Deep mutational scan, measured.
Amino acid sequence: MAAGGDHGSPDSYRSPLASRYASPEMCFVFSDRYKFRTWRQLWLWLAEAEQTLGLPITDEQIQEMKSNLENIDFKMAAEEEKRLRHDVMAHVHTFGHCCPKAAGIIHLGATSCYVGDNTDLIILRNALDLLLPKLARVISRLADFAKERASLPTLGFTHFQPAQLTTVGKRCCLWIQDLCMDLQNLKRVRDDLRFRGVKGTTGTQASFLQLFEGDDHKVEQLDKMVTEKAGFKRAFIITGQTYTRKVDIEVLSVLASLGASVHKICTDIRLLANLKEMEEPFEKQQIGSSAMPYKRNPMRSERCCSLARHLMTLVMDPLQTASVQWFERTLDDSANRRICLAEAFLTADTILNTLQNISEGLVVYPKVIERRIRQELPFMATENIIMAMVKAGGSRQDCHEKIRVLSQQAASVVKQEGGDNDLIERIQVDAYFSPIHSQLDHLLDPSSFTGRASQQVQRFLEEEVYPLLKPYESVMKVKAELCL
């Protein structure tokens, strides 16, 4: 049975990233139509530049190519590739079939990587351009969430054990800070992308030097003109047959890092959902379990974690691919890159769409948070109580021993009897502590235990987050809708 299948058929496997999760716009960027249309555009740009620099290419040939950029006979191309065992030459023939007058000058002087690699770089750039505003929107939604809850005390956790208090907004800023680093890295790697350009079979530009009869300047002009037509500021000066596969490492490393950030955020949300302090959106008709109707599973956060793990592992592909590119190139890269580049971007696209949807509907339960604080705060307040007693004339050592005994009794009630923490009640009825009984409410005010959390939130948002989001103001209103 021949390899390949009808990918629109229910009898043929289709990647869930495309069929179930990723956005239509990201799927289109990695589609065959987008790819092969870009090949034709690159052939047109090459012909236009070659004509401008004096090669015998007519206006009629150029116009014929322009008129057929979208006229792609995919069936013919597939048949040609089956016959020739070469995808680029299959599309040269297919393009030439609908451009008979231009057929002889299509791909003039070029090698397969002229269309293959340059198209990949265009796709990487455009895919990054799709991700950047999506990530900015996630940051914006979380920034709104953090600002609104900047002063809401909550129990902090280290080692997932109760620690000092923080605020809900401050905790959210930990998430935002990681995503801001990801946004900066995505922008950097996007701006650092260079075009492969017009380089020939081993990167020496020998074929173009021959076409222009040894004119170095025209060869350099050709490279520059096509690079500018493709919208790049610069091209690699040095290439082998391909652009260095280190570029793929750079791009997928940034995406993998984004995956790590999203995994951490969504894990926190899942843990908070278990504590009943916070939940992701839950639709009115949504079913959490087929057997347990009360369940409210954090399905979206779980999906993000599941896909983020996949995204983090994909960076190993370009690392290994770059390491086995012998001399000017081997074909070890080809099949692998067809999979890992598309999957990385479709996965990143999915987790950003999902995280935006989550961040637009996060639900906080202040009463649950308050109750958990009441359970733990008495123990945390013991040092403040000791200091207040010393100020009232008591002995630190005597007070410490009193607190120690009462704390152990209260802990026994919590752990052995399943009761509430009654340390404060014990202190309130103990005559030894009568000098500070009137101060206990103040000493137990949760806001006095959150330090500068709310001020940190305000400063972080104003100095770091809002300036970073400013270039994306025009796209901030787009909502994230999930079908599944």
Rank of each mutant, 00 (worst) to 15 (best):
Ala3Gln: 13
Gly5Pro: 15
Ser9His: 14
Ser12Tyr: 15
Tyr13Ile: 13
Ser15Pro: 11
Pro16Leu: 12
Pro16Met: 00
Pro16Thr: 14
Leu17Glu: 00
Ala18Pro: 10
Glu25Gly: 13
Cys27Gly: 03
Ser31Lys: 05
Ser31Ala: 09
Ser31His: 06
Lys35Ile: 03
Lys35Thr: 14
Lys35Ala: 08
Phe36Leu: 08
Thr38Arg: 11
Leu42Thr: 13
Trp43Pro: 06
Trp43Asn: 09
Trp45Met: 11
Leu46Tyr: 06
Glu48Thr: 12
Glu50Leu: 01
Glu50Asn: 10
Leu55Met: 04
Leu55Ser: 06
Pro56His: 12
Ile57Ser: 03
Asp59Arg: 08
Glu60Lys: 08
Glu60Ala: 03
Gln61Phe: 03
Ile62Ala: 04
Met65Lys: 05
Leu69Met: 02
Asn71Met: 06
Ile72Lys: 06
Asp73Gly: 03
Asp73Glu: 05
Phe74Ser: 07
Phe74Thr: 01
Ala77Glu: 01
Ala78Thr: 12
Leu84Gln: 11
Val88Cys: 15
Met89Gln: 13
Val92Trp: 04
Phe95Arg: 04
Pro100Thr: 09
Ala103Gly: 05
Ile105Thr: 09
Ile105Trp: 00
Gly109Ala: 05
Ala110Thr: 07
Ala110Ile: 06
Ala110Arg: 10
Ser112Tyr: 02
Thr119Lys: 05
Thr119Ser: 04
Thr119Asn: 14
Leu124Gly: 08
Ala127Arg: 02
Leu128Tyr: 08
Leu128Asn: 11
Leu130Asp: 03
Leu131Ala: 15
Pro133Asn: 10
Pro133Leu: 09
Arg137Trp: 06
Ile139Gly: 04
Ser140Asn: 08
Ser140Pro: 04
Arg141Asp: 14
Leu142Thr: 04
Leu142Val: 02
Ala143Phe: 14
Lys147Glu: 01
Ser151Thr: 08
Leu152Cys: 14
Pro153Leu: 06
Leu155Asn: 00
Pro162Trp: 15
Pro162Ala: 09
Thr166Ala: 09
Thr167Tyr: 07
Arg171Val: 07
Cys172Glu: 01
Cys172Ala: 02
Leu174Trp: 14
Leu174Cys: 03
Gln177Tyr: 05
Gln177Arg: 10
Leu179Ile: 00
Asp182Gly: 03
Leu183Cys: 02
Asn185Thr: 02
Lys187Arg: 09
Lys187Leu: 05
Arg190Tyr: 06
Asp191Lys: 04
Leu193Cys: 14
Arg194Tyr: 05
Arg196Phe: 01
Arg196His: 15
Gly197Ile: 00
Gly200Leu: 01
Gly200His: 03
Thr201Val: 02
Thr201Phe: 05
Thr201Arg: 04
Thr202Ala: 13
Thr202Ser: 03
Gly203Ile: 01
Gln210Ser: 05
Gln210Leu: 01
Gln210Arg: 02
Gly214Lys: 06
Asp215Phe: 00
Asp216Gly: 11
Val219Ile: 02
Gln221Asp: 13
Leu222Cys: 09
Lys224Gly: 02
Lys229Ile: 06
Ala230Ser: 14
Gly231Arg: 06
Gly231Ala: 13
Phe232Trp: 04
Lys233Trp: 00
Lys233Glu: 08
Lys233Ile: 03
Lys233Tyr: 08
Arg234Tyr: 12
Ala235Trp: 07
Ile237Leu: 03
Ile238Met: 07
Ile238Phe: 06
Thr239Ser: 13
Gln241Ile: 03
Gln241His: 00
Thr244Phe: 09
Asp248Ser: 03
Glu250Thr: 05
Glu250Met: 07
Val251Ser: 05
Leu255Lys: 06
Leu255Met: 06
Ser261Asp: 12
Ser261Leu: 09
Val262Arg: 06
His263Lys: 10
Lys264Tyr: 00
Ile265Met: 14
Cys266Thr: 00
Cys266Ala: 04
Cys266Trp: 14
Thr267His: 14
Asp268Met: 11
Arg270Asn: 08
Asn274Trp: 11
Leu275Val: 11
Lys276Val: 06
Glu277Lys: 02
Met278Arg: 05
Met278Cys: 13
Gln285Trp: 14
Ile287Val: 09
Gly288Glu: 07
Gly288Asn: 02
Met292Leu: 10
Pro293Lys: 11
Tyr294Val: 09
Ser301Ile: 08
Cys304Arg: 07
Ser306Lys: 13
Ser306Gly: 09
Arg309Asp: 11
Arg309His: 09
His310Leu: 12
Met312Glu: 14
Val315Gly: 08
Val315Asp: 04
Met316Gly: 05
Gln320Tyr: 07
Thr321Ser: 05
Gln325Ile: 09
Glu328Tyr: 12
Arg329Val: 05
Thr330Arg: 05
Leu331His: 07
Ala335Thr: 08
Ala335Ile: 03
Asn336Arg: 03
Arg338Cys: 06
Ile339Leu: 06
Ala342Trp: 06
Ala344Met: 00
Leu346Gly: 09
Thr347Ser: 13
Ala348His: 01
Ala348Ser: 12
Thr350Lys: 07
Ile351Arg: 06
Ile351Glu: 12
Ile358Cys: 03
Glu360Ile: 01
Glu360Gln: 13
Gly361Ser: 14
Val363Arg: 10
Val364Leu: 10
Lys367Gly: 10
Glu370Phe: 02
Arg374Glu: 04
Gln375Met: 15
Pro378Ala: 06
Pro378Gln: 14
Met380Tyr: 14
Glu383Asn: 15
Ile385Arg: 04
Met387Gly: 13
Val390Tyr: 06
Ser395Trp: 01
Arg396Ser: 01
Gln397Gly: 05
Gln397Phe: 09
Glu401Trp: 13
Val405Pro: 02
Gln409Trp: 06
Gln409Gly: 06
Gln409Cys: 15
Ala410Arg: 15
Ser412Ala: 09
Gln416Arg: 12
Glu417Trp: 11
Gly418Ser: 14
Gly418Ala: 11
Gly419Ile: 15
Gly419Glu: 04
Asp420Pro: 12
Asp420Tyr: 14
Leu423Arg: 12
Glu425Trp: 09
Arg426Leu: 15
Tyr432His: 09
Tyr432Asn: 15
Ser434Asp: 11
Pro435Lys: 06
Ile436Trp: 10
Gln439Thr: 03
Leu444Gly: 09
Pro446Arg: 14
Ser447Thr: 07
Phe449Leu: 05
Phe449Arg: 06
Thr450Ala: 07
Thr450Leu: 10
Arg452Ile: 13
Arg452Val: 06
Ala453Met: 11
Gln455Ile: 00
Gln455Ala: 00
Gln456Lys: 07
Arg459Ser: 10
Phe460Pro: 09
Leu461Tyr: 01
Glu462Met: 12
Glu463Pro: 13
Tyr466Asp: 14
Pro467Ser: 10
Pro467Glu: 09
Leu469Val: 12
Tyr472Leu: 15
Val475Glu: 04
Met476Tyr: 14
Glu481Trp: 09
Leu484Asn: 12
Leu484Trp: 12
